Amino acid sequence: MTSLSKRIGVGAAASIGVIALLTGCGTAPSATSSSGAASSGAAASSSYLPCIVSDQGGFDDRSFNQLGLEGVKAAASDLGSQFKSVQSATANDYASNIDNLVAQKCNIVVASGFLLVNAVKASAQKSTSTDFAMIDDNSIDLPNVKNVVFNTNEAAFLGGYAAAAYSKTGTVATWGGIAIPPVTIYMDGVAKGVAYYNKQKGKNVKLLGWNADSQKGTFVGNFNDQNKAKTFTTNFLNQGADVIIPVAGSLYQGAGAAIKSSGKTAVLEGVDADVYNTDTSGAKDLILVSILKNISTAAKDVVEQSAKEKTFDNKQYVGDLKNGGVGLSSFHDYESKLPSGLSADLDTIKAGIIDGSIDVSSKAAFTN
């Protein structure tokens, strides 16, 4: 394993395991109550009740919803407490799901994803004795809401550089689920990473699907249309792309299916989780590397801190390369196939991003 995998990937990836998938519906959150402590035969030792609600991608998205649930479950296990979780089938479920969790006396409600912002804000305003952790947004300014955000542009810069270095055709592509900041911040990082590779190496690798200057690009419009994901990927493959970076939760699966049905030689980069470890769709062998958003650790830390503090701390959490909130996974099966010097380059670039000497700015980036 290279020094890159040790310093960037393993620490973040170790916390991202495959969790038990939930099938609860959006109208019955009480049915998904569970206890981490009870699973090991011990009685619950804490009355603190953490809860989590998914967006419409569901807890089986192999991405941010799944990672958030993993973090809440881990926190409940450490605390010796129960936890509750509820999936949202559609956007119409968000408000009622959150209100139902509040009614069940949850001490903190973790909301997985930007799409839940309006529902969280409305509930937090009227339910002032309940605390909330809003993942992937920093627009809510309320004393009982802690915003949990990630500068994934930093890790995506590394992913973009790696994609450009690995590409044999000189063309890579990225596309998103919905044009929202938690998605475009990845795409900005990828674009800057490709551009930095070209500048450093005197190359002209093309990026399809996103223009960081105009903030225009290719988006599915949701996080569940695998057919459209497959169509977009096929179009980019036909334009010569051999590294595809979908920023769309489980829609990487449609991208993988497109690559396999095309007969072309191409790879994927995952986002959020280490997709090599979480995939069950048959795309595992296509994963070059994953750009990590360490949501599981952030959710666990926020829940545990909130359980232990007498006063809720609503100070914003920003995950970045310096604190390990974002990073790159191992290159897994492709470790031996990387261009000479790439791992060393990525180590150097990571250090430059952390000390500020390399510009990875994004319109969607956050500050503490």
Rank of each mutant, 00 (worst) to 15 (best):
V53E: 11
G263T: 11
P181G: 09
D136S: 08
D137F: 05
A76F: 03
L49Q: 08
T169L: 11
A212C: 06
Q82P: 04
N107Q: 08
G159F: 01
I259V: 13
L116Y: 03
R7N: 15
D301T: 13
L142T: 05
T27F: 13
T265M: 08
V289Q: 01
G159Y: 01
Q316T: 13
C25V: 13
L208K: 08
A122S: 15
A42M: 12
T32D: 15
A111Y: 02
T2E: 13
S77L: 12
G113I: 02
S54P: 07
K6G: 11
G170F: 06
T23G: 15
S63Y: 03
V302K: 06
G9C: 04
S262A: 07
N294R: 13
Y197F: 15
V172L: 08
M134F: 11
G341R: 14
E154L: 07
N368K: 15
V117A: 11
S81W: 04
D279S: 03
A20R: 13
S63G: 10
G202L: 08
A344F: 12
G352Y: 04
F366Y: 15
I353E: 01
K264S: 10
I244A: 01
Y252K: 00
L67E: 09
N118V: 05
P29E: 08
K73G: 02
G24P: 01
N100Y: 12
A37N: 09
S33G: 10
I8S: 15
A255R: 00
E304V: 12
Y276I: 00
V190L: 07
N235H: 07
K315R: 14
K337N: 15
A12M: 03
G270K: 00
L321Q: 00
Q316W: 10
S306T: 14
A212V: 12
S123E: 07
L116M: 08
K300A: 07
A163D: 00
A95N: 13
S35E: 02
T234L: 11
M1N: 14
N147L: 06
Q239C: 09
G240D: 10
N118W: 07
V194E: 04
V183C: 01
K168C: 07
I287H: 00
D61E: 03
L207F: 09
Y94T: 06
F232M: 14
V205I: 14
T231P: 05
L342A: 05
S123L: 09
T231Y: 08
N100L: 14
A124Y: 10
S30N: 13
S54C: 05
